[in-house]
């Protein structure tokens, strides 16, 4: 199984070491030539969504990746990655891929002093969740399954091949979210 991790900016290295520790062949996507070979899954990491969006276009990665996602390539998106998938953003900014039927509020918990860690259920399983200047899902469409609600706010969702979390499973020793993602690829 080969999983590509978008490595334009952010904590892509943490995702790669996590995937590697699970025995998965993970590689960095920094430019178009990196995705010329077939791969089985895509990770959109944490970082700054404005930076990634800008670079996706500048490096010609936007259309090819959007097509792959639309064609059913399994995607795991965390924090900024969730913002990239969202169909709409509450602050009115134009969406990036816009492939997931959710409205996301960015910096929803405020600035860094609002960042926090908790344990809450992901798909029914207690999971460690670090939220760092995190977004949450304000509205989810009918075809979207809600996997986590923390403090009455939707923080993890799935729509067919797309899995998105407002928190950072890549920063914990907990593999729950990755297991779900890998299941999506293998089933």
């Amino acid at each position: 199984m080969r999983i590509g991790v978008l490595a334009l900016q952010g904590d892509f290295a943490e995702h790669i070491s996590k995937l590697t520790s699970l025995g998965i062949d993970a590689f960095e996507i920094r430019k178009l030539s990196d995705i010329s070979n077939r791969f089985d899954g895509l990770v959109l990491p944490g970082g700054e969504s404005t930076v990634m969006k800008k670079l996706l276009h500048a490096l010609g990665l936007f259309n090819p990746l959007k097509n792959l996602i639309s064609d059913g390539l399994p995607v795991l998106a965390t924090c900024a990655g969730m913002i990239l998938l969202a169909k709409s953003l509450e602050d009115g900014e134009a969406p990036c891929f816009g492939t997931m039927d959710i409205t996301v509020k960015r910096n929803a918990y405020g600035r860094q002093l609002g960042s926090f860690r908790c344990v809450d259920k992901f798909n029914g399983i207690p999971t460690e969740m670090p939220f760092i200047r995190a977004p949450y899902v304000k509205k989810a469409g009918k075809s979207v399954d809600v996997l986590s609600v923390h403090d009455n706010r939707i923080v993890a969702v799935r729509q067919q091949n797309q899995l998105a979390a407002a928190f950072h499973p890549e920063l914990t020793a907990d593999n729950t979210v990755y297991n779900t993602f890998i299941e999506m690829i293998t089933k």
Binding site: F12, V51, C79, S115, R117, P130
Partner: peptide, 17 residues
């Protein structure tokens, strides 16, 4: 402290930038 960990992690989000 929990906050210190989160603060180090914010820096991790800035990497490559």
């Amino acid at each position: 402290s929990g906050q210190y960990q989160l603060n180090k992690e914010l820096a991790q989000m800035l990497k490559g930038g």
